[in-house]
Design a protein around this nucleic acid. Structure first.
Lengths: 213, 213
DNA sequence: ATTATAATCAAATGCAGGTTTAATTGTTCG
DNA sequence: CGAACAATTAAACCTGCATTTGATTATAAT
């Protein structure tokens, strides 16, 4: 029953990886199905065998990126054996390194997704089943992304409560931190003076200094 | 000789303001000429009386946004009567307030402009005069934007050199700062808990704390 | 008034990009 | 082998959007 896929055939994941690159490079609207297909040596039409449509493919990219980074950050955030400072330092490092290495991570964080996200529901008309499914997945993605932000916020808040950090406006401080991170995904170029780890180290240093009592 | 424009007619600047809003809301590709025209109660065709094409209009938006913020930041950066801390504090405030008030400023900073900017020159074919003009304006815009970043970098560098700030990796610190700023343009919503000034105050506080000796 | 020009529009053009269809070529299992 | 399904494609379809063209209307200068 279980058909093993042919060796040379392109997998769902191959497409996601390629799509992530094209998405990060060109932005949502400018990333064409043809571009993505070309990146895996397929025809645009072939992509529809793997994904219902462009939005679904894009959402899959975002989900992959978010999962990738969540898997790394969540355990750190929950490691109560570590001090708040140490947890935050490691979270910053993972996030920035992820951003510089996995193109899908950047895509998952950044905005140009408005189109996808706005998804102007034709008011009145009932959504088709597919549309409902899509809307649900999209909402789940956003909920998960909020959760991601909350991981940072909670570590910072706890540090403040324990007196390990000075009192700051936690929501604003968190957004400041994450904004700085996400921006790395924008300007980072491989072969620069610093690699992801180097950037991460400095960034963590600055934000921890800002929190010092 | 000088024909005064009719009172009710739409001005170039009206269009730029409207286009900035649409651009910030929808992103480059999704901002259609029709949308922009509708925002000033015109037909898409009418826009071509004021701007050669979409790219030119968009570039005008970016230039307007950059000019707006440059005019405010440059004098602060060059006010040698102030300490580095004070200059930086005021620059941060102006930038963030600008970002929350003038939609064009955000557009000028952020990326989704890749399309415009990549502007894949059909290799080989000579550029038409119009294309050359456009390419020149675009390059000038980017040069000006680099200048903008340099204003911040120089103030920070000077603070470090004078011993007013602790030693930091100036380029990275600057990018960190500006990333945090630009991100404000993404998440800021009017009617939130804090207005631009409130956000600016806190942000400046954190970064100055990070620089404290 | 007359004329030149500014401002605007309706309609047509052309094309790029998402999506569908129907057919073709594997591949795997019994 | 042959049935069943997976992977892929070429070609057609359709639509939305930038842009052009050819009027039409408004305004200001003479």
């Amino acid at each position: 029953m279980a058909r093993k896929p042919a060796d040379q055939s392109v997998s769902r994941d191959d497409i996601i990886v390629a799509a992530a690159e094209v998405l990060q490079r060109n932005g949502y609207e400018a990333a064409t199905m043809k571009d993505i297909a070309a990146a895996v040596k397929l025809t645009a039409a072939s992509l529809y065998h793997h994904f219902r449509n462009k939005d679904t493919l894009m959402l899959a990219v975002l989900e992959a990126g978010l999962s990738h980074i969540m898997e790394r950050i969540e355990p750190i955030a929950q490691n109560t054996a570590l001090s708040s400072s140490e947890r935050l330092r490691r979270m910053v490092a993972e996030h920035i390194i992820g951003l510089t290495q996995n193109t899908a991570v950047g895509a998952a964080m950044v905005f140009e997704i408005r189109t996808l996200m706005t998804f102007s529901l034709p008011a009145g008309d009932a959504l088709s089943v597919q549309e409902q499914e899509f809307a649900a997945r999209r909402d789940a993605f956003f909920a998960r992304r909020d959760e991601f932000e909350r991981l940072f916020r909670d570590v910072i808040r706890q540090g403040v409560e324990l007196g390990e950090f000075r009192a700051v406006d936690v929501p604003i401080f968190t957004k400041t931190l994450l904004g700085a991170h996400n921006w790395v995904g924008v300007w980072y170029k491989p072969n620069g003076r610093l690699d992801g780890a180097g950037i991460a180290e400095r960034t963590a240093d600055y934000f921890l200094a800002a929190l010092r009592n």
